[in-house]
Simulated assay, not measured.
Amino acid sequence: MSAAGRSEDAPDRVAAALRDAEFVRLVATADGDALAATGLLARALDATEVPYQASLAAIPEPPATDADCTVAIGHNGASDVVLRETPLSVAAADVARTLAPDAVDPELALAGAVSAGAEPSGALLEAADLQRRPGVAIPTDDRIDGLAGSTLVHASFSGDGEAVEAALDGIDGDHALASFVALSAVQDAPPRAATAVERALSPYDCDRFETLGGFADVLDAVAEDRPGTGIALALGHGVETAALETWRAHGQRAHTALRSADTSRYNGLYVARTDGGEQSGGHPNAPLGTVARLLFTYRSPEPVALVVSDGQAAIVAEESVDAADALREAAAGLNGRATARDGRGRATFDGSATDYVAAFRGAV
């Protein structure tokens, strides 16, 4: 492998390493921001006719060593270049702009940034020329469909189209809809929900989906459930219909899992045990990454939220809490692996959910 540098390298140095490679591997974590970053780099490589292979995984495996340049996106895996600066998509857009300016999709970069929790701004927003409006950030023009599938909020109606339809009876207009969603999301929720729900309000319009926030929500869903569809979406291959189908199913399963999970509260830790096994359609019953985010944002009274099933776990923690070491130590103690970034992490391990909770608590 060539020594191309690390995450602090200037975009021109990273771009030069990619341009000079005969074959590039892009190895990313399975989240919307990393997916968008992967798509931006892949588009630039396409434009410069550099062959590449892209992959997404909750916990990426060590990549094959057949590439001239390997890029780790969102993790610290073995690589020549590491992109870990949040938002990953903005860092990738800087590299792509240096490599092939005409190949940069500012809307994709902004959607990735929104997925990472950032507010759209700067040159990317100017280039995308998106307008903000009242309402709620959903990816479809049907508000019932949009709110039923959305994982930007968790409320009594989430994941259930009939419940959404009943709840919205008599609510007309974008302002009224936004107010209703905001109030519903903070009901019986921890204080952080009031800040988090703002991501779903006053959305930017979007070309590929109804809103930019909705686009970000779709990116998160396909990254976790259907990485191949996600990469095709990020490359602009016209798979929006398939992506929306994945997003709908993803949201329904996430909200259902959150409601049905067995929860336990410890000092500084809120745990939800759920079923992460495989369905016949290939989807995990509970998309743990999304369930952990919703648990932390809308249900956890503690600064750390852990969702665990037999063999796998996901965590989300407040910025002031460093839970990454405990996540890794607990996984390693059960012959597993883990990766974490910006308060979010995933782990796989040998053992039951109870085994992992005990190991995690012992490592904290």
Results as ranks from 00 to 15, higher is better:
residue 135 G to T: 01
residue 198 E to V: 15
residue 158 S to M: 05
residue 135 G to I: 01
residue 217 D to T: 13
residue 131 Q to D: 14
residue 141 D to H: 12
residue 162 E to F: 10
residue 210 E to K: 08
residue 148 A to M: 04
residue 150 S to F: 01
residue 198 E to N: 08
residue 123 A to N: 08
residue 120 P to H: 07
residue 201 L to I: 09
residue 188 D to Y: 08
residue 139 P to A: 01
residue 125 L to H: 11
residue 155 A to E: 00
residue 216 A to S: 13
residue 126 E to H: 12
residue 122 G to V: 09
residue 158 S to Q: 02
residue 190 P to H: 01
residue 222 V to M: 03
residue 221 A to R: 11
residue 194 A to Q: 10
residue 239 V to K: 02
residue 230 G to V: 04
residue 200 A to H: 09
residue 112 G to H: 00
residue 114 V to Y: 11
residue 204 Y to T: 00
residue 221 A to V: 09
residue 120 P to K: 08
residue 198 E to W: 06
residue 177 L to A: 10
residue 129 D to H: 14
residue 168 L to G: 07
residue 238 G to Q: 03
residue 199 R to H: 07
residue 140 T to W: 08
residue 225 D to R: 07
residue 122 G to M: 12
residue 239 V to Y: 08
residue 152 L to E: 06
residue 139 P to H: 00
residue 200 A to I: 09
residue 194 A to T: 13
residue 224 E to D: 15
residue 213 G to S: 08
residue 132 R to D: 09
residue 220 D to T: 05
residue 231 I to M: 03
residue 192 R to S: 02
residue 120 P to G: 09
residue 142 D to P: 13
residue 203 P to G: 02
residue 192 R to L: 06
residue 171 I to T: 15
residue 169 D to S: 14
residue 239 V to L: 08
residue 177 L to Q: 07
residue 133 R to F: 10
residue 226 R to C: 10
residue 168 L to M: 11
residue 224 E to A: 15
residue 128 A to R: 07
residue 197 V to I: 15
residue 192 R to M: 03
residue 153 V to K: 06
residue 125 L to Q: 09
residue 201 L to C: 07
residue 145 D to E: 15
residue 219 L to E: 00
residue 163 A to P: 02
residue 164 V to W: 05
residue 120 P to E: 05
residue 179 S to D: 13
residue 246 T to A: 12
residue 150 S to L: 06
residue 128 A to C: 12
residue 206 C to T: 00
residue 203 P to L: 03
residue 241 T to K: 13
residue 142 D to Q: 11
residue 146 G to A: 08
residue 248 R to D: 04
residue 211 T to W: 00
residue 239 V to T: 13
residue 206 C to N: 06
residue 195 T to L: 15
residue 145 D to S: 12
residue 212 L to Y: 06
residue 183 L to N: 11
residue 230 G to F: 04
residue 195 T to W: 12
residue 194 A to H: 06
residue 202 S to E: 12
residue 186 V to E: 03
residue 131 Q to W: 13
residue 208 R to Q: 13
residue 213 G to R: 02
residue 245 E to S: 15
residue 117 G to Q: 03
residue 185 A to E: 00
residue 241 T to P: 02
residue 245 E to L: 12
residue 233 L to N: 01
residue 164 V to Q: 01
residue 211 T to K: 02
residue 243 A to W: 03
residue 186 V to L: 02
residue 245 E to V: 10
residue 157 F to A: 10
residue 222 V to N: 07
residue 237 H to P: 04
residue 216 A to D: 00
residue 224 E to F: 10
residue 185 A to Y: 05
residue 165 E to S: 15
residue 227 P to M: 09
residue 196 A to W: 10
residue 133 R to A: 13
residue 234 A to K: 01
residue 209 F to C: 04
residue 157 F to K: 04
residue 220 D to C: 11
residue 160 D to N: 15
residue 180 F to K: 01
